[in-house]
Design a protein around this nucleic acid. Structure first.
Lengths: 230, 230
DNA sequence: TTTGTATTCCATAATTCCTTGGAATACTGT
DNA sequence: ACAGTATTCCAAGGAATTATGGAATACAAA
């Protein structure tokens, strides 16, 4: 019994529990794999419920319910345009929170590495943001964005070429010859750049994967190009 | 149907789900009020299961189960000493994660403010870390640590005086006369400093609350005094 | 106003989480 | 070895979460 009962006036333990239960709502929102997938998508660009549904393998109403949970936790906001409602991250602090939770899991849970390797396959040659920045200055690389066009349109690395991964094999000739290629995608747990590098390498090109995706580039304070809407 | 089906080779959605489920384990661990209370305590100092049980109003086995969850998520580690097992945060990154989740909730969920006010009572006069640092240099303040002695022993602000909140009314005479008092405790959602300031003010002293607690001071990279064990 | 579409609300079943006593385990200290 | 203590494991009931169709809502477009 090291600790006294702290019984000078004794703060109400029910009120304390109510407070921490409220604070836990953010954790709860982060505590579901499908919701993390949704956040990962929203970290790229705002998207409608329908579009998110198509991308994550759940029913429409289920996705809507998850989005309600995220919204109630203050992690996402909505904007109406025409008859669609576009969800987006509520701010850069939310992106930071998502990344920190994800990276903490990766750093401290041994299983993550195993499951990630199982999903992503072999790790291709990678370069860091710093290496890419240096290489861009020297004109050494062609930077390739292999995400869906909508995400490229929302924001992309300056000077990046957009060829979505599912069109890559048919559009190889658009990539300047005799350059090294650096492909990037949504982030460290996105398969697109892995697959792109594999395909490019099989086609005889010299290709690398940027070790992080666009959200991490943005979070690092590096410049991005965004079309800006209308 | 904005997004193509991404069906070039189609990564296995089950493996993707398995990966994000793993990443979600950290969020799950943060998604329970009682576990947040435990983290808040562990942010002060390492503690045994028994000691945590006394402090949080749950059964021993319940606390043990929560600690297992936190440990499985990699957020805490254990150290045996004698017959007790001491739990502590796994690292400063875990503290950063806890703080970011908590502060995000506070910033983005309106209810938090209301429930916090209900628990903490009236907000006393507060000063920031910067103001305190400036004032210490000028010898203007007596810094008062009102947490339990064990937490003070683990780490405290340089030069702070230790008087636990439940002994404060009996030990008022230990506080140097004719100085302003700055009381601090576990953090923004701890009542101790609120109560201390109220008691001191009623006793005719000039007292303020440091707006954050020791963990935030430490996280800001400011110096602390720790006894070091043994 | 009417029609059509995107999204949310509701009810429900399957699953997982929380809490708890009692039993089992892993040590320490003698 | 033996007794004692701190902690974890186990089983079980109750509560909360998740996924899902069908109905209701909130708009926009005509």
């Amino acid at each position: 019994m090291e600790y006294k009962s702290e019984g000078y006036t004794m703060a109400d333990p029910e009120k304390k529990a109510a407070l921490f239960d409220q604070l836990a709502r953010v954790g709860k929102a982060l505590g579901n794999g499908k919701r993390l997938e949704l956040l990962d998508l929203l970290a790229q660009s705002e998207r409608s419920v329908e579009s998110l549904t198509a991308a994550c393998g759940l029913g429409l109403t289920t996705v809507s319910a998850h989005l309600q949970t995220l919204k109630a936790a203050g992690l996402v906001t909505t904007r109406r345009e025409g008859q669609k409602i576009h969800y987006s991250l509520a701010g850069d602090d939310v992106l930071a929170l998502y990344r920190l939770a994800r990276d903490t899991a990766a750093a401290r849970i041994a299983d993550v590495e195993r499951v990630a390797a199982d999903y992503l396959g072999d790790t291709p040659g990678q370069i860091s943001r710093d290496e890419l920045l240096a290489g861009i200055g020297a004109g050494r690389y062609t930077v390739l964005d292999v995400r869906p066009v909508e995400e490229y349109d929302a924001a992309h690395l300056p000077g990046a070429l957009s060829i979505p991964i599912d069109e890559l094999s048919a559009r190889l000739d658009e990539i300047p010859a005799d350059t090294q290629i650096v492909a990037y995608c949504r982030g460290p747990y996105c398969v697109f750049a892995h697959d792109a590098v594999e395909l490019l390498t099989r086609s005889g090109r010299s290709a690398f994967r940027l070790e992080d995706g666009l959200p991490e580039w943005h979070a690092a304070g590096l410049p991005i190009t965004s079309a800006g809407r209308a």
